[in-house]
Design a protein around this nucleic acid. Structure first.
Length: 469
RNA sequence: GCCCCCAUCGUCUAGCGGCCUAGGACACCACCCUCUCAAGGUGGCGGCACGGGUUCGAAUCCCGUUGGGGGUGCCA
């Protein structure tokens, strides 16, 4: 017999934005599905009506779209499938796999405190034959003996003693199902073949397995628990503590391709060791069983390196259009002074220098702003400490730039004539002009910049700076 | 406390019993290139947590110790 085609799911809960950890989980599911020629489906786990925020669902979808992780079929919303869960719960209740319980969380906690020992539910209502009622929940009757085990693609054999599992809630007192139940029902109903998720969910696996057993769920379910992505303290990434919203990375000027490529290296490595490579190659090489099992630190520095590589690999038109947002959204110059054609001239020079698209405006603001924004540290270093050299160079430039041809090569020759005559390093000679014209001691190549700025404005800025020395 | 998982350079990883004097990448340092900054080039720094086994041979297999993480909700 031929094995069932792979069908995996990404099942976010709309209680927050898509974060880095979720994006990685979605990516690995997607990679596995695409590599296997299988399907990747989406399921919104919104059974907790108190916490779910429907407006976040689209935000999550948009983040997945931005990442380029396309899904098969329409997403399933658990909130719209309550009949399925209720009938599963009735079935479990009917055959004794589950029972009604009237204990409040406080009562459970209080008894545990009196009892001492491990916290958790003590099976108080197990055999009381309670029925539905105000404040009643449904609990799953966990076998007292035996073990529940599974073979994890990434971790190997994992087993739990049933005796260590408490009778957990599968239906809240408000009638909504808990996620273990909905999860087990949906995975069976949707024909899911592999569950690929974070390691933080590994200990709910026996509960889901127990429910599947009791429901006589059809089909095999294979699990793969991904290592967690951790922060610098090696703790699981947290939305509150860490900077992890995918949306924030979009806003900072990261390219989706760079993010996806970087995320793929967290827990997985291509056999040939090449890290930066096109997505189709990653799809081809990806093997779920090759995923590592220890936590991986989310290293923004390395992500930035990847991003710089991807930015440099863009064609110039692609770079220009990718930068658009940062050029028009709250730019550091009066919007009407911006000119695309001018930017396009400078674009290739900027492209090879930025790691983030959000840095782009800072490289071209001197052209579009009426005055250069003077960086104090640069002025101090070059103009003040530079002393006589600065004044001499600016005087030379003011004269030479007035008569030379206005193109980069001529400007370079005109300015560096000073370096030849006075035997001064070219680096020292360009500095005062750069600070006078752009306000900073670093930036795109100077002479191309001057060419774009034009003779009148360049001379005005040079004289202006000279006057202030 | 109890349960589960993990352990190769600072970080991400390659390694799946001899090819390892442990390879690559990021970061860092030096030098080269150079109008600044980047990019690029060359070189450097730096690791198998520890202790027992198994074996002719262990980063690789087994056990233990230590360390770290996750879970322990009427969240997912």
């Amino acid at each position: 017999m031929t094995p069932a085609p792979v069908r995996v799911r990404f099942a976010p809960s709309p209680t927050g934005y898509l974060h880095i950890g979720g994006a990685r989980t979605a990516l690995f599911n997607w990679l596995f599905a695409r590599q296997q020629g299988g399907q990747f489906v989406l399921r919104i786990e919104d059974t907790d009506t108190e916490r779910s925020r429907p407006e976040l669902i689209d935000v999550i979808f948009q983040a997945l779209e931005w990442l380029g992780l396309d899904w098969d079929g329409a997403p399933v919303h658990q909130s719209q499938r309550s009949e399925l869960y209720s009938s599963a719960i009735e079935k479990l209740l009917a055959d004794g796999s589950a029972y009604w319980c009237e204990c409040t969380p406080d009562a459970v906690k209080a008894r545990a405190a009196v009892r001492g020992g491990p916290p958790g539910y003590d099976g108080f209502c197990r055999d009381r034959g309670l029925g539905p009622g105000e404040g009643h929940v449904v609990r799953f009757r966990v076998p007292d003996e035996g073990t529940t085990a599974f073979d994890d693609v990434i971790r190997g054999h994992v087993s739990f003693e049933n005796a260590n599992l408490e009778d957990f809630v599968i239906q809240r007192s408000n009638g909504t199902p808990m996620f273990h139940l909905a999860n087990a029902v949906d995975d069976a109903d949707q024909g899911i073949t592999h569950v690929v998720r974070g390691e933080d969910l590994i200990n709910v696996t026996p509960k889901v397995l127990l429910i599947r057993d009791a429901l006589h769920a059809a089909g095999e379910l294979t699990f793969a628990h991904l290592p967690l992505i951790v922060n610098e303290k090696r703790q699981k990434l947290s939305k509150r503590r860490d900077d992890v919203s995918v949306g924030d990375y979009i806003d900072r000027g990261y390219l989706a391709e760079a993010m996806v490529n970087y995320l793929a290296t967290l827990g997985w490595g291509a056999p040939d060791g090449i890290e930066i490579r096109p997505l189709p190659e990653i799809v081809e090489l990806f093997r779920l069983s090759d995923v590592g099992s220890s936590g991986a630190f989310f290293d923004v520095k390395k992500l930035q390196h990847f991003n710089g590589e991807y930015i440099r690999n863009l064609s110039v038109p692609q770079f220009v259009s990718s930068s658009t947002r940062w050029l028009f959204d709250d730019p550091p110059w009066p919007p009407d002074r911006f000119d695309v054609a001018t930017f396009e001239v400078l674009a290739p020079l900027v492209q090879e220098r930025v790691k983030l698209l959000s840095e782009v405006p800072g490289y071209v603001d001197f052209v579009f702003a009426p005055e250069p924004t003077i960086d104090d540290a640069s002025w101090q270093k070059v103009m003040v400490k530079g002393g006589e050299l600065a004044t001499a160079v600016l005087d030379h430039a003011a004269g030479a730039f007035e008569v030379c041809e206005w193109d980069a090569a001529s400007l370079e020759a005109a300015l560096f004539a000073y370096a030849e005559e006075h035997d001064v390093a070219r680096g020292k000679v360009q500095a005062p002009v750069r600070v006078a014209v752009t306000g900073r001691s670093v930036g795109p190549p100077l002479f191309e910049s001057l060419e774009v700025l034009g003779r009148d404005e360049t001379l005005r800025r040079v004289r202006d700076a000279r006057a202030r020395l």
